[in-house]
């Protein structure tokens, strides 16, 4: 039991430390480590991943909680999730201090001045990717009109009610999905 927990901490801390660029980049690392320790086959992990994507929360954290639970119960879930988050919390605390120190520095202004439009492009690209997977089937000729209808409905709600809470929109779209699709 203690050994299981220690292995969980080690594996998830390691993955957390070397995953740059967000949750989905961790997937290959997860698969390698889980197969190595015999915790989960990659087929099974794909099921877990789809669960992790359908539930709220960061995808990587959700997967860690699930796998931790399957290895060492509730304690395992807590330990695995904590170990996965720990490296980014520690590193970000140091970076954050640095960022606050250089707040008005001209070099920082220059670097972030060019990073802002780049970041907007990244967000837009992510939106386009989600849109592509959501509005189209396997091919571009396979258009899912009902889903596009839901999106238009949400867009009208968002436009009509200026100060609308995004949480309300999420709940509304889930209900619409169950009723229409």
């Amino acid at each position: 039991m203690i050994m299981d927990l220690l292995t969980l901490i080690w594996v998830f801390f390691k993955i957390g430390l070397f995953s740059f660029g967000g949750g989905l980049t961790m997937v290959p690392l997860f698969i390698i480590e889980f197969e190595k320790h015999g915790w989960m086959t990659s087929d099974r992990f794909m099921d877990v991943l789809s669960l992790a994507q359908m539930t709220p929360g960061a995808i990587a954290m959700n997967s860690a909680t699930y796998v931790g639970n399957s290895v060492a119960g509730v304690t395992g879930g807590v330990v695995a999730t904590g170990a996965l988050a720990a490296p980014s919390v520690i590193i970000m605390l140091l970076m954050s201090r640095f960022l606050m120190k250089v707040k008005e520095h001209p070099i920082k202004e220059a670097v972030f001045g060019s990073l802002k439009p780049v970041t907007i492009a990244l967000i837009m690209f992510a939106g386009l990717q989600i849109g592509e997977n959501t509005f189209f089937g396997d091919t571009f000729t396979n258009i899912r009109w009902k889903v596009i209808g839901i999106a238009l409905f949400i867009a009208v709600c968002q436009y009509g009610l200026k100060k609308i809470n995004p949480i309300f929109l999420i709940v509304l779209s889930a209900i619409a999905g169950v009723l229409v699709l």
Binding site: Q53, M54, I120, I123, M124, A126, G127, I130, G131, N133, T134, F135, V147, I148, I150, A151, I154, A155, Q158, P166, L169, I170, L172, S173, A174, I175, A176, G177, V178, V180, L181
Partner: peptide, 20 residues
């Protein structure tokens, strides 16, 4: 759950558009 999630994804696209 699958249907609800597809609905949520449609909503995400709209919300990200507005954020952009």
């Amino acid at each position: 759950v699958q249907k609800a999630f597809t609905g949520i994804r449609a909503c995400l696209v709209v919300m990200i558009c507005r954020s952009v």
